[in-house]
Design a protein around this nucleic acid. Structure first.
Lengths: 338, 338
DNA sequence: GGTTAGCACTCTCACGTCGAGAGTGCTAAC
DNA sequence: GTTAGCACTCTCGACGTGAGAGTGCTAACC
């Protein structure tokens, strides 16, 4: 049973360890928070906390280090969040408005800002529509028999694809075709586009429509992630040996990150979710934690996440992830709203 | 004076060191290439090569390591290139055609492929038009008073920007405006667009045209780089200590890479250029080499580069960089050709 | 029963020593 | 000009050691 006093002590161990990265000793605890207790009493309580699985010792007679359960308890009952104050909000929003561009620029920028704010790796995925639809298609002449198809989707994605034309066409022809197809295919999902293919007699019309259908459900929009903060996280003492560092770089490049983010499935926008160490299955990721939040609405969801060692300043990270996800929801709403 | 025999020996030192990363001893030289000479003779010649600055000793009585001058000589006169054989060409081209998408996807993919082929970091920049021009503009309604401007440039760039409208407009209005502006601004450079601004009486027409002008000469197209191969390069023995590795990650993230690539200024498409160690100015980059080639034509140039420690397999890297740059020129030509 | 002082015990870590090994430069002979 | 032989230099890993940090336990105390 976790008595109130032991809970307090656990909280101290966790926050101390998060701050210093050194195993926490009984002496450090009485020194930094004036409890009216001796180190011996603390040691007794620490022994109990260890029995109950909240903390561990790296070796006999070293200080204590939180276990995953310890962090979990910290996050859920002991910690008080460090809110994003008005000042910091202003800074973030100001940076966010520095760039005027499209969705991708916001995504990339938000990853950079978030990484800077929490000192760990930040990942932002492009929002993925449950079933996105075409909003507008345009064809641009590249040369006699090649055209660039630019399609804007209702979730704000802008996709492009090169098309080889059967019949040469002028820009006027192409614009005309794009207008015709937009009129017919706007607001329609991929399978419906495919159903309509039969009605298109012109070969190039059909090829264009087929390309549009492919662009609509191109998986890539889900895969693409914007990541920043790598060199910041590598400065953490957990990576002070070469093998760990290499492992970290390899883990954070591409493949694994996607697995980490699959934890996001089922999360609701507005809430943050924290996955700590062993709580995700993959062996290689057991020393990492992920704090994530989804943004967007029922039609298109993206993920904002921070990834770092389990020894992570959760009290700072969680509110910042939530805040940035909120900002992104807002921005996305502006873009989507028809 | 570099006699023929010393040149041969220098070549052996450099290739041996590139392969093993260990200082090369006189014994290693006679063991691996059957010269009819004793280690003592080799030692005499090594001493001469050291006097002349081609090689150095990490400490008294260790083997020899090439200096920047040694590498330079190797690259220019001693080395014979390891050509990209038909088999490998097929593999690369095959990977290249895996993805159907636009310019960005090609750029990103080519960086990945090149990094894999040479085992170092590869960087590809988006081609930058000397002065790019508008090919086509389209406006897409987002909500009552916001529209997305999508502009296609004659160098294949697709840019987007959100616009806030003074006067609400329907999609038909927007398409109409886009068509009008395209007709007027097509093939025109940024300063000319600005000159024409005065003629536009409608506030939203003017705002759109101004946005187009900004997109045309947005510097970002030059800055954006596609990079891959980080974790491969970190496995090289030169980064076997933590500080070096951190330094390497920091160097290769963003800022410095751009400086490295400035070496590209003035290079002509078709030729590769090699910058070794101290040959570029910045202190932090003195242990790095860059092999780069420009691609494209007179109107729009991009850069393909490989970055790695000075101990780099130049004989493999140079032909592969040249080959990929050639492929990119080809692809770009297809896209640009009007 | 909870709390605490005291103490023996354990484990890590930084430091210094030391010898093996690798490689050289030099000398003298060919 | 080439080469065998040898003394010399420097690195690097292994090993030992002692200081220091921190614990668990016991016994006394409130």
């Amino acid at each position: 049973m976790l008595t109130e006093r032991r809970a307090t002590i656990l909280g101290m161990v966790v926050s101390e360890y998060i701050q210093t990265a050194e195993p926490v000793s009984s002496r450090a605890i009485v020194a930094n928070h004036h409890l009216d207790l001796s180190t011996a009493t603390i040691r007794n309580e620490l022994a109990r906390l260890e029995d109950e699985g909240y903390i561990t010792q790296p070796y006999t007679s070293a200080g204590r280090v939180p276990s995953d359960l310890g962090y979990r308890t910290f996050v859920e009952v002991l910690m008080s969040e460090d809110p994003v104050r008005a000042e910091e909000q202003r800074t973030i929003e100001h940076q966010m408005h520095q760039v005027g561009g499209g969705l991708d620029e916001w995504l990339s920028l938000s990853a950079t800002i978030l990484a800077g704010a929490v000192g760990n790796v930040a990942v932002v995925t492009r929002p993925r529509a449950r079933a996105s639809r075409l909003r507008n298609a345009q064809l641009v002449e590249l040369n006699r028999d090649t055209a660039l198809l630019v399609a804007v989707m209702d979730d704000g994605r802008v996709c492009q694809r090169m098309l080889t034309l059967r019949a040469p066409a002028t820009q006027a022809d192409l614009s005309d075709r794009a207008a015709r197809l937009t009129a017919r295919l706007e607001g329609v999902d991929a399978s419906t586009v495919r159903a309509l293919l039969a009605e298109l007699t012109d070969a190039d019309d059909a090829a264009t429509a087929r390309a549009i259908a492919e662009l609509i459900d191109e998986e890539r929009s889900a895969e693409e992630t914007f990541l920043d903060g790598l060199s910041a996280v590598l400065k953490q003492p957990e990576f002070s040996d070469v093998d760990r560092m290499l492992e970290a770089v390899a883990t954070l490049q591409a493949y694994r990150v996607r697995q980490l983010l699959e934890e996001a499935v089922g999360a609701v926008p507005g809430a943050t979710r924290v996955v700590i160490g062993h709580e995700h299955g993959d062996d290689a990721l057991q020393e990492w934690s992920v704090v994530l939040a989804r943004y967007g609405d029922a039609d298109a969801l993206g993920t904002v996440a921070v990834i770092g060692p389990t020894r992570m300043p959760y009290h700072r990270t969680i509110p910042r992830v939530r805040y940035v996800a909120g900002l992104m929801s807002h921005l996305l709403h502006e873009v989507r709203q028809a």
